[in-house]
Amino acid sequence: MSVIIFTEHSNGEIRKSSREALSYGSALAGRMGVSAEAVLLGTVSQDPSSLGIHGVSVVHHCADETLNTADTRRYTSIMAEIATACGSTVVIFPHSMNGKAVAPRLSARLKAGYVSGATRLPDVEKGFVVRRNVFSGKAFMDVLVQTPVSIISVNPNSFGILEGEGIAEVRPYHTSVGAGRVVVRETKKVTGQVPLGEAELVVSGGRGLKGPEHWGLVEDLAGLIGAATACSRAVADAHWRPHHEHVGQTGLAIAPNLYFAIGISGAIQHLAGVNRSKVIVVVNKDPEAPFFKAADYGIVGDAFEVMPRVIDAVRKLRKG
């Protein structure tokens, strides 16, 4: 019996959302009194035994370079193989782009109930009940898994990273699952930036900023505090900012610790993507802007006057 955790890496580095999933899986294994084991596909730059700090006792490592590019069908087959070999009763994924594609496939493969985007640890007292987000962040749903094996993807930023002292035993894994039919032609990545979905701090701009030439106000603040940048859909539609920055109902749903919104009205569809943020700050010149109803802190004022002073104050804070 074990909890196994699908562990992703990017350019050889273990991803933050996977560290959260490892921490979640280890905490759950602790509650269930079973072992927590990571599954690592592809080659990484660090020693996989270091994943032990997040509580896993074993890392099943398939150090095959062809696994560095994601083929979700192939990943599913390997996960199914390992889950079966380990007699796993729970399989954990990060709710990342690949996690979202592999976890449901594995669910259909193993006929194992899937809970997508869990926000906290399962309640194992009365069955296996897991809380997740529904209605685009406007409600939670408690789901009972009715099968012997459960599959869970963990929402980014919902469960902290636990770090201890442990060193995991690395078990090389040789898969019989061959290459698939997916040929990756090109990968375009914005490097050096925090991926929006994983970011703890996010600074975001709306149409109130009047044009892309004023995005320095967003970028300067983001740069100073180490935040990712985001925007409203109106802004992405106007091509002021790239589409992958658009948050909301039809964009990315995020749950950072800080969401700092400048010149965004706070339409319900925008809120749907950001209302799970822990602290929301709104700068808007209209006191009636709906965003203030969802905010924790706010300034009713002109962004072009307020933001340079906010940025200065943060700069001073950083220096002091």
């Binding site: 991803r15 782009m97 990968t187 930036q193 992958h244």
Partner: peptide, 12 residues
Amino acid sequence: REIEGGEEVAEI
């Protein structure tokens, strides 16, 4: 398709 912080083009 979208990947974290970027895009990937694949032939399938």
